[in-house]
Amino acid sequence: MGVIKDLKNLIAGLGITGKHLGTHAITVQYPEQRDKIPERSRGIVVLLSDKETGELNCTACQLCMRACPTGAIVVEFERDENKRKVLTNFTLDNTICCFCGLCEESCNFSALKLAQKYEFSTIGKEELVWDMHKLQEVGRDVPYEDKRKKKKAAPKKPTPKPTEKKPEEEKKPQQTKEEVEAQAEKKAKPVDKPVDKMEPKPEPEKEKPATEDNQPGEKPKAGEEPTEQTGGKTEQAGDDSKDDTKKEGSD
C-alpha cells in the first residue's frame, strides 16, 4: 500500500517536470543572444563628454571622489593662471569599484555615469585601472541626460556671483552659473574626506579654501595656500601618495 502511494507521489513530481516537455528554454545563449538590460542598470563607470564640443563634462570638483566608499576614484587637477581647475587625470580602479552608484548621484555636472556596459574582462589586473582617456573613450556612445541646465546661457555672461570669479567664468566655457552656485554651496558646508585611508587632513586647511573659489578640504596634500595658487605640481604628488594608501587599505 505504502509503495503504491509512494510511486504515485513520485509520478506526480515527474508530471510537474514533464509539463516542460516541448516548451522553450527561458535562458539565452549568452554571447550570441543577450537579455535586454534595464535603463538604470549600473555597469562600469564612464566619463561623459559634451554632446557638442566632445570635451569632458568633468570640472574636477572631486565630489565623486569624496562620495566613493571604496576610494576607487582619484581626480587630479592643476590650477591654471586664473586659479581655475583643469582636470589632469581621472583614474578609476575597476578592481575596487563596488558599483554602488554614489559617484553618479553626487555629480552635479553629468560628468560620469554607470553605463549599461558590463563586459570589461581583461587578462591582467593592471589593465582594469582606467585613466581619463580610456574612460572617455568607453563613454562616448553612452546616452545621458544633461543636468547642466544653464549651460547655453552661462559661458559668456559674467554672473553676479563673487567678484573674484568673473574672469574665470569668461575663460572657461564649462564652468557654468550652476557650477558656481554649487561651489558656493559647497563652500557653505565643507565636505570632509570620505575615506579613512586618505591622508589625514590638517585641520586649519578646512577653513582656508572658504576664501578661495575652491571647495574646502579637497586637497589635503596640497600643502599651504601659496603652493596651491602657483601650480599643481605638489597636488600631483599628493594624489599619487593618496592612491597608494588607498590601495593598501582596500586589501
Binding site: 538590460i37 534595464p38 538604470r40 542598470s41 549600473r42 563596488c98 558599483f99 554602488c100 552608484g101 554614489l102 554607470l114
Partner: peptide
C-alpha cells in the same frame, strides 16, 4: 530590482 535601482544583488 534591476529595473528600479540598477543592480541585481547589492542594491544600495
Amino acid at each position: 530590482f534591476e529595473m528600479t535601482c540598477g543592480q541585481r544583488l547589492t542594491y544600495n
